[in-house]
Write a protein that binds this DNA or RNA. Structure first.
Length: 638
RNA sequence: GCCCCUAUAGUUAAAUGGCAUAACACAUCCAUGGUAAGGAUGAGUUUCAAGUUCGAUUCUUGAUGGGGGCACCA
C-alpha cells in the first residue's frame, strides 16, 4: 500500500505495488506520454521500476537535464548495438554521457571510417524504428563475468571484475542485445527519437592510461528535438568560424611553419597587438608596485638541477650544448632567473614585499600531439611575476594580485571569471604545518575577495597551493589563464634570504603569478572571443583611409598622416579599385574605422566614417575626429 | 608520444598513371567611382625521400607538417 509523495507536495495512495508509468498516467495523460525516467527518493530509476513502499518520486521528461542525459545515454547504447550488428566481433567497453552528447569506446582491429559512421547512423535510426523494448535484469556478478567472457567481451568482463564480489550487477536489454549498465534507461529504443548525429571517431586509451592499448572512440551528439540538434550544430559552426588560426591568417597577424612547429612567426600586425597588450600590462603593473626585470633565456644546467626542474621537468626542456661541451638549458620557466636577481645584494624585511615582473619568453618541448595554434605552443611569453614576501603578507598580496587580474580581464572584455583553488597534492615538498599556513592564507584571500570559487582537491603544485583564474568567453567556453601559486620550496633551494627585524636571516615566501598566463595563448582567446573584431584600443590596424577616386589621393594621404600622428594605426588605400570594392575588402579584414574622402570631405575638411558592422555614415570635421579617436585610443587605465 | 584523417598557386578548393584547373588575392592596362566584389590581360602550383612503372601530383612505404581526439599541460 505505497503512498507516493509528488514534488508539488500532493500524495497518491495505491493499493498495490506500482510502476512509474502508472503513476505518470494517474497524474496526467500528457505526462505519461512525455515521461522518460523518474527518481525515487532522489535515486534515478526506470519508469517500470516497481514501487513497493512509501516514497517521494519525481518524473522527468526531456525538458529536465536528467531526461536529456538519459536520452544521450540511450543513444550511446544503440550506437554500441548498431556497431555490433554491423561489425560482428567488435568489443564494447564504456559509453558515457558527456557535455552535449556521448561517446562509446570500442575495441576492433580495423578502424572506423567516415562512411562507417554514416552506416552506423542509419542502423541506429533503424533500431529506433524497431522500437525494441528495454528491460533490466539483475545478475550475480560471476554469472555476468562468464556471460561476457563467453561472448568474447573481454573488456566488459574486466569492468565487472572490478566490482566488489558481493554485489549484483544490472544488465540492460534492448530486445536481445544487452550491456552491463547502471541505468536508468528509457522504456524502449523508440523513445530516443532521431535527433542525434555521430560527429567524429578518434583514438582513446583503455581506462584513460597511455600505457594501455588504444581503443576507437565514436563521439555523437543527441537531443530531444530537431531544433536543439540544429542549434547545437550551428554553434559548432560558429566556433569554427572564429577559429583564431583561420582569422589570424585572414587578418595577417601570424603564421606557423614546419621549421619550428609550435612557435609563432608574428607578422607586423600581430606583433603590434602583442606589444599593445604588453605595454598596457606594464602600465598596470607599474601602478601596482611591480619592478620589471629580465633574465637570460639560457642558463647552465646546474642551476636547473639545483632548482629541481631538471629532475621534475627535464623531459620538457630544450638544451643547448656549446662547442666546448657545456650543457645549457633554455628556460621553461622564469622563476630560477628571478630568484637570482633577488639574491643580488642583501635584502631587508623593509624591502618586502618585493614584486618583480618579467615578460619572459620560455620554451617547453610539448608533446607533438598537443600543439594547437596559439593555444598550445612550444615557445611563449609569460606575463610573469614573482613576489618575495613574509608569511604574514601572503593574504594581502594575493588579494591585490586577484584584483589586478580581474581588472585586466575586465578591460579586455572578460567579466565572467571563476577561481579554482588547488590544495596540497600527494607528492609534495615541505612540512604539513607550512602547508596549513599557506593554504589558509590563500583561502583567506579568496574569501575576502568574495568571488565565486571551486576547490580542486589535491591539484596544487608540488611546491605549494595555487589559485587558477578561469574566464568564460562570448560563446561560453572556459579558458584557464591566470595563475597564482604560493611557493614554499624554491627560495630555500636557491638560497634566497632576507634580514629580519631581529637581525636573523630568513627565507622569504615566493608567490608566482601570471596574468594572462601566455601572451600567445591569450591573443588566441581574444581573437576567438571577439571573432576577430578586436576593441579599438588594441586593434593593430585601427583605420583605413579610402579616397573615393584617385582625384582625392593627396587629401587622403594628408588625412592618413594626421591620423597616424595622433597615434592611431592607420593606412591609406590608393589601389586601383572602386569604393565599393575597398569597403568590402577592408570590412572583411575587420578594420574598425573606414575613413572615406571625396569631394565633399575635401571641400569641408572633414572625413566620413564608416564603422565596422554598420552601414551608417558619419561625417566629422577632421580636427574633431582626431581629438575624439585619440582619446578612445588610450588604454583603459583607471 | 599514441590512434584516425590529411598535404595541389599567396588563400580556398577541383582534377588526373601521360600539357594540372577554377575562384579570390597579386601585377599591368582600361574605366574615375559616394558606402560590401566594374572590365580586360598576365605571372604563379602538386611537402620531402624511397619504391612500383616506359612514365607518379595520382599507387605503395617512410619522414615531416597540419587537423580531430587520447594522453600530457610542470
Amino acid at each position: 500500500m505505497p503512498t507516493i509523495k509528488l514534488p508539488d507536495g500532493k500524495s497518491l495512495s495505491f493499493s498495490r505495488k506500482i510502476t512509474g508509468f502508472e503513476i505518470a498516467k494517474k497524474i496526467s495523460k500528457s505526462l505519461s506520454k512525455q515521461a522518460l525516467i523518474m527518481s525515487v527518493d532522489n535515486q534515478l530509476k526506470d519508469l517500470d521500476h516497481l514501487i513497493e513502499n512509501d516514497c517521494s518520486i519525481k518524473i522527468f521528461t526531456s525538458k529536465d537535464s536528467e531526461g536529456l542525459e538519459t536520452i544521450r545515454h540511450d543513444t550511446a547504447h544503440i550506437l554500441a548495438m548498431a556497431v555490433q550488428e554491423l561489425f560482428p566481433g567488435t568489443q564494447v567497453t564504456i559509453g558515457p554521457v558527456i557535455e552535449n552528447g556521448f561517446y562509446y569506446d570500442f575495441a576492433r582491429k580495423e578502424s572506423f571510417t567516415q562512411e562507417d559512421l554514416n552506416k552506423i547512423e542509419i542502423k541506429m535510426k533503424e533500431i529506433v524504428d524497431r522500437n525494441e523494448p528495454t528491460f533490466k535484469e539483475v545478475w550475480k556478478r560471476n554469472k555476468a563475468i562468464s556471460h561476457f567472457k563467453d561472448k568474447g567481451e573481454i573488456y566488459k568482463a574486466k569492468i565487472i571484475e572490478d566490482i566488489p564480489e558481493s554485489e549484483d550487477v544490472s544488465i540492460y536489454f534492448h530486445g536481445k542485445w544487452n550491456d552491463l549498465c547502471r541505468g536508468p534507461h528509457l522504456s524502449s529504443t523508440g523513445k530516443i527519437g532521431k535527433y542525434f548525429k555521430l560527429t567524429k571517431v578518434s583514438g582513446a586509451y583503455w581506462r584513460g592510461d597511455s600505457n594501455n592499448e588504444m581503443l576507437q572512440r565514436i563521439y555523437g551528439t543527441s537531443w530531444s528535438n530537431q531544433k536543439d540538434l540544429d542549434d547545437y550544430l550551428k554553434r559548432i559552426e560558429e566556433a569554427e568560424k572564429r577559429d583564431h588560426r583561420k582569422l589570424g591568417k585572414e587578418m595577417d597577424l601570424f603564421h606557423f611553419r614546419e621549421d619550428s612547429p609550435g612557435s609563432v612567426f608574428w607578422h607586423e600586425k600581430g606583433w603590434n597587438l602583442f606589444q599593445k597588450l604588453i605595454n598596457y600590462m606594464r602600465a598596470k603593473q607599474k601602478r601596482a608596485g611591480y619592478k620589471e626585470i629580465n633574465t637570460p633565456e639560457i642558463l647552465d644546467k646546474s642551476l636547473w638541477e639545483k632548482s629541481g626542474h631538471w629532475e621534475k621537468f627535464g623531459e620538457h626542456m630544450y638544451t643547448s650544448t656549446t662547442p666546448d661541451e657545456k650543457v645549457f638549458a633554455i628556460k621553461p620557466m622564469n622563476c630560477p632567473g628571478c630568484v637570482q636577481v633577488f639574491n643580488q645584494g642583501l635584502k631587508s624585511y623593509r624591502d618586502l614585499p618585493l614584486r618583480m615582473s618579467e615578460f619572459g619568453k620560455v620554451h617547453r618541448y610539448e608533446p607533438s600531439g598537443s600543439l594547437h595554434g596559439l593555444l598550445r605552443v612550444r615557445a611563449f611569453t609569460q606575463d610573469d611575476a614573482h613576489i618575495f614576501c613574509t608569511e604574514d603578507q601572503i593574504t594581502n598580496e594575493c588579494l591585490s594580485i586577484t584584483n589586478l587580474i580581474l581588472e585586466i580581464y575586465k578591460d579586455l572584455g572578460f567579466t565572467n571569471v571563476l577561481l579554482q583553488f588547488s590544495d596540497r597534492p600527494k607528492k609534495r615538498v615541505g612540512d604539513d604545518k607550512i602547508w596549513d599556513r599557506a593554504e589558509s592564507a590563500l583561502l583567506k584571500a579568496i574569501k575576502q575577495s568574495k568571488l565565486k570559487y571551486e576547490i580542486n582537491k589535491g591539484e596544487g603544485a608540488f611546491y605549494g597551493p595555487k589559485i587558477d583564474f578561469v574566464l568564460r568567453d562570448s560563446i561560453e567556453r572556459d579558458w584557464q589563464c591566470g595563475t597564482l601559486q604560493v611557493d614554499l620550496n624554491l627560495p630555500g633551494r636557491l638560497g634566497a634570504s632576507f634580514v629580519d627585524k631581529d637581525g636573523s636571516k630568513k627565507i622569504p615566501v615566493m608567490l608566482h603569478r601570471a596574468l594572462f598566463g601566455s601572451l600567445e595563448r591569450f591573443i588566441g582567446i581574444l581573437i576567438e572571443h571577439y571573432s576577430g573584431k578586436l576593441p579599438f584600443w588594441i586593434n593593430p590596424l585601427q583605420a583605413m583611409v579610402i579616397p573615393v577616386s584617385d582625384e582625392f589621393d593627396s587629401y587622403a594621404k594628408q588625412v592618413n598622416e594626421k591620423v597616424k600622428n595622433v597615434g592611431i594605426n592607420c593606412e591609406v588605400d590608393l589601389k586601383n579599385h572602386n569604393l565599393n570594392y575597398k569597403i568590402r575588402e577592408h570590412s572583411l579584414s575587420k578594420i574598425p574605422l573606414l575613413l572615406i574622402c571625396g569631394k565633399k570631405e575635401v571641400d569641408s575638411n572633414t572625413v566620413t566614417i564608416r564603422r565596422l558592422d554598420s552601414n551608417k555614415q558619419e561625417n566629422m570635421e577632421l580636427k574633431i575626429f582626431l581629438k575624439k579617436f585619440a582619446a578612445l585610443n588610450k588604454a583603459p587605465l583607471n
